[in-house]
């Protein structure tokens, strides 16, 4: 009995190591002075890359800020508009049709979606600027938000809404005192999930942004192309640290059925 327990915890540790190792690897690589074949471990370390990051006019720092701004905007707009519209969709008699339609843009490859929409973005003067990239991200994040909230607007919520109305509450009061508090947890989850959709996005961003809107993911790609692996590791670390910190506070913010 104890031996099977030991074998099980051994395998769990192997799995845990597989998942933790990449984080450690990226951090080490971002701190390595140089790390060449066949060294298993860098000979010397430097904090210079990390420190220049916070110096003035660091390109990478600007990308970090840009990514943050884009992701916060996308998350904010997608969550609120998704919350509001999903109610109208859920109570509509064509509910099933709307829910099904909302899956299409969400699961469709973002890069292919961007490819067929590129023309319209140019026409609307939205190619190659931050506004266009935010809109592009919203086109994926908003349907997700609708899907996520569709479960909230069920029979139970409807009964509660009717109850509030019979008690004399108007629509604004219903939102303020009932819907928003009830959906608080879900709103947070949606905010972080849509934040991450934008934070992680690469393909659509490079097309709609025409490579000019240099978010962090684009920086990673650029560094890989330049064979500057140390900076790629640094940019990668910047990408994964916020979600890992988030994970530390609440696993639910990351683990949601996104597919």
């Amino acid at each position: 009995m104890t031996s099977t327990v030991n074998i099980k915890s051994f395998w769990a540790k192997v799995l845990a190591a597989t998942f933790i190792f990449p984080v450690a690897y990226l951090l080490v690589l971002s701190l390595a002075e140089s790390w060449l074949f066949p060294e298993l471990f860098p000979v010397s370390f430097t904090a210079e890359r990390w420190s220049t990051l916070f110096s003035t006019n660091s390109e990478l720092f600007n990308s970090l800020l840009l990514s943050l701004v884009v992701a916060v905007m996308v998350a904010f707009i997608s969550t609120l508009s998704g919350f509001y519209t999903s109610k109208q969709l859920a109570y509509h008699r064509k509910r099933k049709l709307w829910m099904r339609l909302s899956y299409f843009p969400f699961v469709l490859s973002p890069v292919i979606y961007a490819a067929v929409l590129y023309y319209y973005f140019i026409e609307l003067n939205l190619a190659g600027n931050i506004g266009g990239v935010i809109l592009g991200h919203i086109l994926i994040a908003y349907p997700y938000s609708v899907i996520l909230f569709s479960g909230f607007w069920g029979n139970r919520t409807q009964r509660i809404e009717q109850l509030v109305q019979t008690l004399g509450g108007n629509r604004w009061q219903t939102y303020k005192h009932v819907f928003l508090p009830l959906a608080q947890g879900l709103l947070l989850i949606c905010f972080f999930q849509t934040f991450l959709i934008s934070w992680f996005e690469y393909g659509l961003t490079t097309i709609i942004g025409v490579g000019k809107v240099q978010t962090l993911t684009l920086k990673v790609f650029q560094y890989i192309n330049e064979a500057n692996f140390y900076n790629a590791a640094l940019a990668s670390s910047l990408l994964i640290l916020p979600p890992i910190i988030l994970l530390y506070f609440n696993k639910k913010y990351l683990f949601q059925k996104r597919w």
């Binding site: 990449p22 690469y202 993911t217 990668s236 990408l239 890992i244 988030l246």
Partner: peptide, 9 residues
């Protein structure tokens, strides 16, 4: 942890 990784990383 892998949920915190974007595809490009």
């Amino acid at each position: 942890i892998p949920l915190a990784f974007p595809a490009i990383v």
